[in-house]
């Protein structure tokens, strides 16, 4: 199964353990992600927050790059929810708003043909491979691991743009983790915001928001949080206070544990809250 791939900036920096676990998981599943040539930053939150047209044109250039590379799959997969959101917003505007489409086409210098489909890695794995294929790959069911799935904002909202499930109670990651055998707990905070880039300017506020999320995760009985977003992971991993912080995993890392993929130590060493002791206590790591 082949897809074109937009990795985004953070897979080479703050989300490097996400990148490593993605590589391991897709290789084991026989999924090929072919990186598109010469992509640029999607603009993240900053671009649209200060200039709306810049926030559409930057991701649109990536759609233009993907569109040109016709030897690759028209399904453009991205693993980062922030990038997914930016690309989807641009694609939504290009697809549905003629006036904006003309402006963006002129700004970027391309003609949109609507053939590129923006998809998230999590959606592709759950929908294209599905329960049967994925659960067959499980060597060590995660039944001893109690966790909550944390989706955050960008993967789900705005609903009309992302097109992904119920924005108040998405189940995609919950299902995927259940297929890995995990003891997935229900909680009310799965799509609550983590404070996003306020972490850099208002660390105290984000610490409070993260504290509340973690309190509710604990209340649900979770010993770990799982997410797909680099910013959520960073905020939850770095801004917990107290002596017994919860490890915060990328979903591909836990797939890697369940599928018993090699070189996992190189993922755990990148975490601020070391997941090693929890995984060792549960018998998943030595």
């Amino acid at each position: 199964m082949k897809f074109s791939y937009y990795p985004g900036c953070t897979v080479h920096s703050t989300a490097i353990e996400y990148a490593r676990s993605i590589d391991a998981v897709v290789a084991a599943l026989g999924v090929e992600l072919a990186e598109i040539e010469d992509w640029n930053c999607c603009g993240a939150a900053a671009a649209h927050s200060i200039h709306r047209k810049l926030g559409l044109a930057l991701p649109a250039r990536n759609i233009s790059q993907a569109q040109k590379q016709t030897h690759l799959s028209p399904d453009l997969v991205t693993s980062c929810p922030g990038c997914f959101n930016a690309l989807k917003r641009a694609d939504y505007a290009l697809r549905n708003d003629e006036e904006t489409r003309k402006e963006i086409e002129e700004t970027v210098g391309f003609a949109y043909n609507g053939e590129v489909r923006i998809r998230s890695l999590m959606e592709v794995l759950t929908h294209e491979l599905g329960e049967e294929v994925l659960s067959a790959k499980v060597k060590r069911p995660l039944d001893r691991l109690k966790l909550v799935c944390y989706y955050g904002c960008a993967l789900v909202r705005p609903h009309a743009v992302t097109g992904l499930e119920n924005p108040e109670n998405p189940m995609m990651m919950d299902n995927l983790m259940k297929w890995m055998g995990a003891d997935v707990r229900d909680w009310s905070y799965k799509t609550e915001c983590c404070g996003a880039d306020l972490a850099l300017t208002h660390g105290d506020m984000v610490q409070k928001i993260v504290g509340r999320l973690i309190d509710h995760a604990r209340e649900a009985g979770a010993e770990a949080v799982v997410t797909s977003c680099g910013l959520c992971q960073a905020n939850l991993d770095m801004r917990q206070t107290g002596t017994d912080p919860l490890p915060v995993f990328y979903f591909t890392e836990l797939m890697g544990v369940a599928m018993d993929l090699p070189n996992r130590k190189g993922w755990w060493s990148k975490h601020i809250v070391n997941p090693g002791p929890l995984l060792a206590r549960l018998g998943y790591e030595s």
């Binding site: 909202r157 705005p158 915001c193």
Partner: peptide, 11 residues
Amino acid sequence: MCVTCETCFAR
């Protein structure tokens, strides 16, 4: 202060 989490729009 708005971080564009879009919870307002969703609801």
